[in-house]
């Protein structure tokens, strides 16, 4: 029950989705569509599980007065308020019949006032760390590091007005050497070549792993017991 049933579920679901491509008539086509909806529904329960884990972790920390327990109250409060205003569709003229993000809803207010600034600033903060990390890491010590450095700089300069100014004096016959044109060329050709090699490698890896999962050779997701 603990291992055989999950292995059978994986095999049946995986095989059905593959067969749906090769045998278009019913019932595989319908199963393919319905499984996609099932997957979405299970994903929502995964969000609920995540919320449950969050409550358990931070609730426990508050109860035991653990490290930074006062901040756990902030997490719990933010979670509870957002959940209540979202599930209840509080605020806004249409109420529970209306759109979740309709103007005037409190959920939209939380999104605009709290979530958007926090997420954007968190990622913006990385700009400083990426800059300082690259300053320390990017030393042109080897040919490979030099290529990476030059390519990165051309792309950065080529996408700003500085790139145009620095090489704007070049005659028309050498316009392909201007930094913006070089940046475009790097993106279109060598970058595509590298991306493509990586993508093909990943595709082979994913295909092999998928097959191992469906056939029950790869069982890591079932845990140890």
């Amino acid at each position: 029950m603990r291992r055989t049933v999950p292995l059978m579920i994986t095999f049946i679901v995986g095989l059905t989705l593959i067969l749906a491509v090769f045998i278009p008539p019913e019932p595989f086509d319908t199963m393919n569509r319905e499984f996609s909806v099932y997957f979405d529904i299970i994903a929502v329960f995964a969000f609920v599980l995540g919320g449950g884990n969050l409550l358990r972790l931070h609730g426990d920390r508050v109860y035991r007065r653990g490290k930074d327990w006062k901040f756990s109250i902030v997490t719990l409060a933010g979670f509870a308020v957002t959940l209540v205003v979202g599930l209840g569709k509080i605020g806004g003229p249409p109420g529970v019949r209306g759109d979740l993000m309709a103007p005037g809803t409190w959920f939209r207010f939380v999104f605009n006032a709290v979530l958007t600034p926090l997420s954007a600033t968190m990622f913006a903060l990385l700009a400083f760390y990426v800059a300082s990390a690259s300053f320390r890491a990017f030393r042109a010590k080897t040919p490979e590091a030099t290529i990476l450095l030059v390519s990165g700089f051309i792309i950065l300069l080529g996408r700003t007005f500085l790139g145009g100014i620095l090489t704007g004096w070049l005659p028309d016959s050498l316009s392909f050497l201007t930094i913006p044109n070089l940046a475009d060329w790097i993106m279109a050709w060598p970058n595509t070549a590298g991306q493509r090699a990586i993508v093909i490698g990943i595709a082979l890896g994913v295909t092999a792993t998928s097959l191992r999962l469906i056939l029950g050779i790869e069982r890591g997701y079932l845990g140890s017991d």
């Binding site: 969000f47 599930l87 959920f107 939380v110 926090l118």
Partner: peptide
């Protein structure tokens, strides 16, 4: 940071439900 964790977890949960 803690507010972000709580609000974003609830946000995605609500989006999933509705």
């Amino acid at each position: 940071e803690h507010l972000f964790v709580g609000v974003s977890a609830a946000y995605w949960m609500v989006q999933g439900v509705w």
